[in-house]
Design a protein around this nucleic acid. Structure first.
Lengths: 222, 222
DNA sequence: AAAAATTTTTAGATTTGTCTAAAATTATTT
DNA sequence: AAATAATTTTAGACAAATCTAAAAATTTTT
């Protein structure tokens, strides 16, 4: 049925998927950076993945996963995120420490295992970082977007869009280091003026106005 | 702190441990058989494990794990059995199907992960097959031995010893395929004459007398 | 549009783990 | 104790994944 890929191949597939999400076409050096390897190694693997019909690749002109490559990437990401969810909710590990372990667990690829794990965890829609978990068919769940001020306290989520794209807004977002894809959570709300204390990953907590929060949309499951 | 071993090295270590449990000295061909590989490959790996100071090895004269090799083996076995326990009790998989998956999971070697998994599972003393789970210090738990007739119904266990070593007894044990290390469980007891219907792995169910059962000892946790 | 700089690919080596076939050693028969 | 058989090791090759250094192609600068 489904083809087996080596651990190394899986890591390449996953990285290409992540990078092409933003730029559509991926180039050799950025992938080498992302995987902490050398450009020459990337070229070698690209040839291999091409013969396995997972990507479109024209020498010197970049590459991208085709449909079956993307499908495979989503299967790997699904495993990764389910394990992260398990590590945090069942074993009580901290989010910021689960990634490395999930990176190893994701390569254990029994379909039955993953289906059962998913059920056991209650078919979660997002991982502990707020990233959506693809379903069994490799489809990303359609997540509701809510303004940041409606996100439950301390619940981690991912910034999905920003409604007001004025210069002033962008300047402020930039200042706080908030962008599409940022991991974010609300630590506290101040009823007095509707402002919120928030935390963006790898940055100190800060306070933003209620008006700003109303214009920052984040994913929320269910 | 603790040295990391490759997946392949870990598989060799584990197999040697299993084989030397029975015969103390292990020979090249039996290890090759056990690992489904060739004698030449075994010799290559032996050299490697010797330089890593995990085993005593004299050319042409067999080999055995030394203390640090045994310790490493027990760490791997601990991981394997904890994962088997998880797969059966939490994910509801069948015993006879968990081995292959645990075989992959056991190589994920974060100490923190295993400590948490152990706690989460309630620090089990035996895996679902009845095999004891080494503790965090690599020590096999001292398990109580009970006669087979006192083992709870349907609870899987491992034959630990046989009290009456008469020829007649041995003949019968042989006939049923029961030996030290056999995985066994009691399906049913017949009050009429105290006989028991039992199941030994990979063999059809059979019935033995109450007297026989009293002389077959098995491990029981707690 | 040449020259310079950057990016990507190729060529050839290296490491890990495996294999086959042949040689060396040990064990068993006669 | 020689001859034969079985086991184990060595020698040399191979595949996967990586690397360095050099060559080729593309992009940017002047």
């Amino acid at each position: 049925m489904s083809v087996k890929f080596s651990e190394s191949e899986e890591n390449y597939i996953k990285s290409i998927y992540t990078l092409q999400g933003k730029t559509e076409k991926v180039n050799t050096n950025s992938l080498a950076d992302h995987l902490n390897t050398r450009a020459a190694s990337v070229t070698d693997m690209l040839k291999k993945l091409k013969t396995k019909k997972l990507l479109e690749y024209k020498k010197y002109y970049g590459f991208r996963l085709n449909d079956s490559g993307k499908k495979e990437a989503l299967r790997i990401i699904r495993r990764h995120r389910l394990w992260e969810f398990f590590l945090v909710t069942k074993l009580g590990m901290d989010w910021d420490k689960v990634h490395a372990i999930a990176e190893e667990l994701e390569h254990v690829s029994s379909n039955d295992l993953i289906k059962r794990l998913d059920n056991y965890l209650g078919q979660p829609k997002t991982d502990p970082h707020g990233d959506p978990i693809p379903d069994d068919n490799g489809i990303m769940p359609v997540l509701k977007q809510v303004p940041l001020n409606e996100l439950p306290l301390k619940k981690s989520s991912i910034v999905s869009s920003v409604s007001s794209q004025t210069n002033q807004m962008m300047e402020m977002l930039n200042h706080y280091g908030i962008g599409i894809g940022s991991q974010i959570k609300v630590l506290k709300t101040f009823d007095f003026d509707g402002s919120l204390q928030i935390k963006i990953s790898r940055q100190p907590a800060c306070v933003i106005s209620g008006l700003a929060a109303k214009n920052i949309f984040v994913y929320d499951d269910n």
